[in-house]
Computed example of a mutant assay.
Amino acid sequence: MGRTQTFDTTEVVRAARAVFWQHGFENASLAELEQATGLNRSSIYYAFGSKRGLFDAAVESYLDEIIRPRLQPLKGDVVAADALEQYLVGLRAALLQVGSLPATHGCMLVNTAGAPIGHDEAVAQTIRAYTAELREAMTAGVRAARPDASSSTVEALAESCTSHVITAMAIVPISPEDAARALDAARALIAAG
């Protein structure tokens, strides 16, 4: 007879996500994951198969609960002219919110790209898909903000915005001012066209 699950999977994954976000996959110990989730090692392995299974669930949670809601206004059939501006202003505020995970640890996936697990093909594919999703959202936002711009201009501005966003999320833990400057530069690029 199988075990009866007595915990909320969503809450467990969120708790683990915070540990992975703070420490990365390699440096997140099972003891820290046990403490954060309230589960013992055997329950983690039973529910998720492995530490890696829990990490994969945390990454999906990060995308679904942190990244995609912020990108949503840039992904609809109709994108408002100020949607990209609002995204950049909102991201700037999130990155400068003292003590928050985004402010102290940047982007979980950008950090993962530079870690050993980032070389795992499945993880690398998730990061590439995230970058493509971000670029697609930036493109829609630029197109809405600059409806008269040529396709090549839209593409160049979207690529620049994507790069500025990734830079901001990578550098914020050590230089919030530079992260803010990167996002302000993206806003200035869009305004200047």
Rank of each mutant, 00 (worst) to 15 (best):
Q97E: 14
T6D: 13
S152R: 12
S29V: 10
A81W: 01
F20M: 01
D148I: 08
R135D: 13
L134V: 09
T4M: 10
M138Q: 04
E34W: 03
L91M: 06
D178A: 09
R187G: 01
G76N: 12
F25T: 06
L71S: 09
T112C: 10
A145V: 02
E65L: 15
R143V: 03
A103G: 00
Q86A: 09
A185H: 01
C161K: 00
A129S: 14
Y45V: 05
I117A: 06
E26W: 07
R52E: 14
I117P: 00
E133K: 13
V154L: 02
E121C: 09
F55C: 05
A168S: 07
Q5D: 11
R187D: 01
M1A: 13
N111V: 07
V59H: 01
V154M: 01
P116E: 10
D120Q: 13
L96T: 02
A145Y: 00
S100I: 02
I190T: 04
R187E: 00
E155G: 05
A57W: 03
A115G: 13
A93H: 01
A156D: 07
A156G: 00
E11T: 15
P147W: 03
T9M: 08
A115C: 08
R92K: 15
T126Y: 12
M169V: 09
R17G: 03
R68Q: 15
T162P: 04
R14N: 12
H119F: 11
A179I: 00
T131D: 11
T139E: 07
D120Y: 13
G114H: 10
A186G: 05
L109W: 02
V89W: 03
N40L: 10
G99Q: 14
I127A: 12
A31Y: 14
S151Q: 15
G53L: 09
A81R: 08
Y62C: 06
L84S: 02
E32Y: 08
H105Y: 08
R41G: 05
G118V: 09
A168K: 00
L96Y: 03
Y45M: 09
V89C: 05
Q86T: 04
A170F: 05
Q72I: 11
S151A: 15
S152I: 07
N111C: 11
V154E: 02
E65P: 09
I117V: 15
R70E: 01
M1I: 12
P116D: 14
A83R: 00
Y62W: 15
F25H: 11
Q35C: 08
V59T: 08
T37Y: 05
R68H: 15
I174A: 14
Y130E: 04
Y87H: 05
F48E: 01
A103V: 03
C161F: 03
E121H: 12
G106I: 04
G99W: 05
A36D: 06
G114F: 11
A115H: 07
L84M: 04
M138S: 05
E60N: 13
L109N: 04
A122I: 14
G2V: 15
R52K: 14
F7E: 13
R92V: 02
G90W: 01
L189G: 04
D178K: 04
A28Y: 07
A137Q: 05
R128T: 11
M138E: 03
D64R: 13
E11C: 13
